[in-house]
């Protein structure tokens, strides 16, 4: 096999190595050690400064630095061109990226250009001890099943990893490494221009970031009844979610939808009220630590993924739950 080494495509956020990059270096170092190969990282940006040394401290053997005004912010064409050129030069065995705004755009283009084998949104990566192939575990069917994937012949083997699934690299300032500048960044490859970036503010707690989510389904019955869920969510500093059915009924705006075509949430506590748990809904909440199901139908699927359940009318359960929690929390 002529391909050698692991290459991490790093990301920079607010002048630092992004948290996902530290996770990529963590898993990258582990795979590099298992294979007895070098760990490379590509840093693309403008004014990268001492981040190359940072990357070495976090485990990289070689840091390829593409420092250019064109690369100030993520641009699909420019980043693909730079990363593809580096891959053609150093022929890595494995390329790792983050499942982020940038990574999920860059990875399949890069795979397409290089002819590699790619698995996106991986939860686990390991090296098969006998074949030395990269074994990638990723969710399929909205997280209702997992698949293990290998690329026998296509190179590089490529993966994007879901954030917060890998242990971040540990800093060691005594580590030594090499910094290699990437030259010849060609502006003519840039066909798609970014005109503006807009940050959207949300009122209250953002659904994706909330530690507690209270979701309602078709069984809630009408828009007004969502108020009892809002009361409980407010009490717990949480956010209100809903199923596709409840949103389509117009009881709550579509922005509250949890599921395959809505938001993917992974709170500490997910309270599922009067919803049955269709596959597309489970796809949006299966990462929750603790799930509480409240449903009249004890046979509803949601009980299969719940930690605690109450079988009965939510109109009797939720207000009583809110009242007792209020008392216990001293609010």
């Amino acid at each position: 096999m002529s391909n050698q080494g692991i290459l991490v495509c790093g990301e920079i956020a607010e002048g630092k190595l992004a948290p996902i990059t530290l996770e990529l270096l963590g898993i990258g170092r582990k795979l590099a050690n298992d294979l007895g190969q070098e760990l490379n990282i590509l840093l693309m940006g403008s004014g990268i400064g001492n981040l190359a040394q940072e990357a070495i401290a976090f485990g990289a053997d070689k840091v390829h630095v593409a420092d250019n005004a064109l690369l100030q912010e993520y641009n699909s064409d420019a980043y693909t061109a730079v990363a593809a050129k580096l891959c053609q030069k150093i022929s890595p065995d494995i390329v790792l990226l983050g499942q982020t705004d940038g990574g999920r755009d860059l990875a399949p283009r890069l795979a397409g250009r290089l002819g590699g084998g790619l698995a996106m949104d991986c939860l686990e990566l390991s090296i098969d001890p006998s074949t030395k192939l990269l074994v990638q575990t990723r969710p399929v069917f909205g997280g209702n099943a997992n698949a293990r994937i290998v690329s026998k012949a296509a190179r590089p083997q490529m993966a994007t990893i879901r954030s917060k699934t890998m242990a971040p690299a540990v800093r060691d300032d005594s580590r030594k490494g090499q910094v290699i500048p990437v030259e010849d960044i060609d502006a003519s490859t840039v066909k798609v221009k970014v005109l503006e970036r807009v940050k959207e503010k949300t009122e209250g707690v953002k659904l994706e970031d909330a530690e507690v989510v209270v979701s309602g389904g078709r069984g809630i019955g009408n828009a007004q009844n969502f108020q009892v869920l809002r009361d409980l969510a407010n009490l717990l500093n949480g956010a209100v979610g809903a199923t596709r059915a409840a949103c389509e009924e117009g009881w709550i705006p579509m922005t509250h939808q949890v599921g395959q075509t809505g938001k993917i949430v992974s709170p500490k506590l997910y309270i599922a009220v009067a919803l049955s748990g269709a596959m597309q809904h489970i796809a949006g909440c299966s990462g929750s630590k603790c799930v509480i199901a409240v449903n009249k139908d004890g046979g509803a699927n949601i009980f299969k993924i719940a930690t605690y359940g109450i079988v009965g009318d939510y109109k009797e359960v939720i207000p009583a739950l809110s009242q007792k929690l209020k008392e216990l929390l001293g609010k």
Binding site: N146, R148, T307, I310
Partner: peptide, 24 residues
Amino acid sequence: HSEITSLFIPTRDTTCEVITADTL
């Protein structure tokens, strides 16, 4: 370019504890 070597439904280590009482 890639192949699936295994497909499985992830096991959940929780079984639902259904809470019952005289009233809801």
